[in-house]
Amino acid sequence: MIFTSREDIEAPIDFVFAQVANFAALERSILRRGAEVQRKVDRTSAAAGMMWETSFDFKGKRRQMEVTLVSFDPPSSMSFEGKGKALNCDFSVDLVALSRGRTRLSLVAEIKPQNLTARLMIQSLKLARGNVTKRFEMRVASYAKDIEDRYASCA
């Protein structure tokens, strides 16, 4: 199952990439939402190979996933790969400079079931695809608005 979202942000591409690649802030945000995250492999600066161990509630059950930063190409893209017992997930972030002060953020998340139970769970998500897609897009829009606000406050 694939989710996509695209938002235009009133900020330069370098600023947007710096915000998206601020992993410490993202970790704090994840913790505030009730999930657990811990860096497993840390680098002195952001680079491919960074790893996190996460656990979160999904469909009424606690899930664990190991997330790896697969590619890191400043200031245009990065991709992550998550591996769990029942689900795998690929997540990519792409940035395109529309002008000097405007950037397009594109997110793609693909969830892949690894067993029959996970397939049934994904099937139930497909039945509610409209609501789930709407929530995903609203979360991305909120994140984009936060980045715009941070840029406006420091510019």
Rank of each mutant, 00 (worst) to 15 (best):
V37M: 10
S92I: 00
A152W: 11
A25Q: 03
R139S: 14
Q123L: 14
I122M: 07
D146M: 07
K85W: 10
K40D: 14
M78S: 03
E27K: 00
S5L: 06
K59A: 15
I2E: 11
P74G: 09
V96M: 06
T44W: 12
Y143E: 02
V132E: 02
S79C: 11
V16A: 01
S76R: 10
S77H: 00
A48T: 09
I122C: 05
D57R: 11
G34S: 10
M65H: 05
W52K: 03
V96E: 04
L87H: 00
T133Q: 10
S153E: 14
S77M: 05
V140G: 02
F56T: 08
A46N: 08
R104V: 07
I111K: 04
S124M: 14
D94T: 10
D146S: 04
R39T: 14
F23G: 01
E36A: 13
D73M: 12
I122P: 04
L31M: 10
F23D: 00
I122K: 04
V93K: 02
A86Q: 04
T133R: 06
A21M: 07
M50N: 07
A128W: 13
N131I: 13
P75T: 09
A86T: 06
Q114F: 11
S77G: 09
R119E: 10
K83N: 08
S55A: 15
R28F: 05
V16G: 01
K134P: 03
G101L: 01
F3N: 03
Q19R: 00
T103M: 04
E110D: 13
V140K: 00
C154V: 15
A118H: 02
D42R: 13
A24K: 07
D94K: 07
V140Q: 02
V108M: 07
I9K: 05
A47N: 09
S55R: 02
